Amino acid sequence: MVRKIVHLRWKQRLGPIAIGDKLGMPASTVHAVLVRCRINRLTHIDRATGEPIRRYEHERPGDLIHVDVKKLGRVPDGGGWRYVGRQQGGKNRSATVERTGAAKNKWHNPLIGTCYLHTVIDDHSRVAYVEAHDDETKETATQVLKNATAWFAQRGVTVRRVLSDNGSCYRSHLWRDTCTELGITPKKTRPYRPQTNGKIERFHRTLAEGWAFKKFYNSESARLAALPGWIHEYNHHRPHSAIGKAAPITRLDNLAGHHT
């Protein structure tokens, strides 16, 4: 009976009342079983597989860093459609393309390009490092890894492992050789399993809501100028619910007095 209750919860996302109706048992009994199996809340279940979420956290800063690339459409001069509307946003895009001489797509629509945010986050502390670039090539990705490793080293953190998805820049020989040069063990997620890299996926959502689309920007340069300040706020002041509502920087050793 427990297996039937769990099966209906995982596969059909039913609640205690619906499950009790199907199995002819009280909803309170079904709820007690769901609590015992730790799947009484849908937030405890992986959306893709229906299995209970397995969370992990490495013991020390630098034991594992997560890396990924977040792609954002550039903001045209005068603002994007989210704040000025689609009609005015389209005019702003066209004017920006005319000014910069950017290319158009095969439907002759103006293209203002993509901003590639190379993001790095420490598994234990959740301290983040971000660089904005014009591409996601292997050369750019490896340079970001070198810069991030040096940035963490200045804060007393030695990077030992790096976890990435299976993007081409992370599968390259250059990435492998750079990791060997830095003394870092490269790790890959399972294909089509972004949940394994969930910390950085969640950071991307926070990044989009807290910085990229938080307010009106009248140009791409204005948005990028606001990025360092937001990263500082995230690392030094924003309470992180997964680490006891403390700021991520508090989990690092304050060897150089960077976060007094």
Rank of each mutant, 00 (worst) to 15 (best):
I39V: 15
R193T: 13
N105T: 03
D122F: 05
H133Q: 09
A256R: 12
A18D: 13
K71P: 03
K22H: 05
Q143S: 10
M25G: 00
A141T: 03
G79D: 03
F203W: 15
D123N: 04
I112W: 05
V30D: 06
H7P: 01
L34M: 13
R205A: 00
R54W: 02
C179M: 12
D63H: 10
R9S: 11
E57K: 14
G85C: 05
A18E: 14
G167T: 06
G78W: 02
Y192K: 11
C179N: 13
F216M: 12
P76Q: 02
K11M: 11
E209Q: 09
I53E: 06
P194W: 10
Q87L: 07
Y192L: 08
Y129S: 00
V159T: 08
N254L: 07
V30S: 07
I184C: 11
N166M: 04
V127F: 14
H44E: 12
R193A: 12
K214I: 00
F203D: 10
C179Q: 10
L111A: 01
V157C: 05
S125T: 09
R74T: 02
F152G: 00
A27V: 07
D253T: 13
L174F: 10
R60C: 10
I243S: 13
G50W: 10
P194A: 11
Y217V: 08
A212C: 01
H124S: 00
A48F: 06
R190E: 10
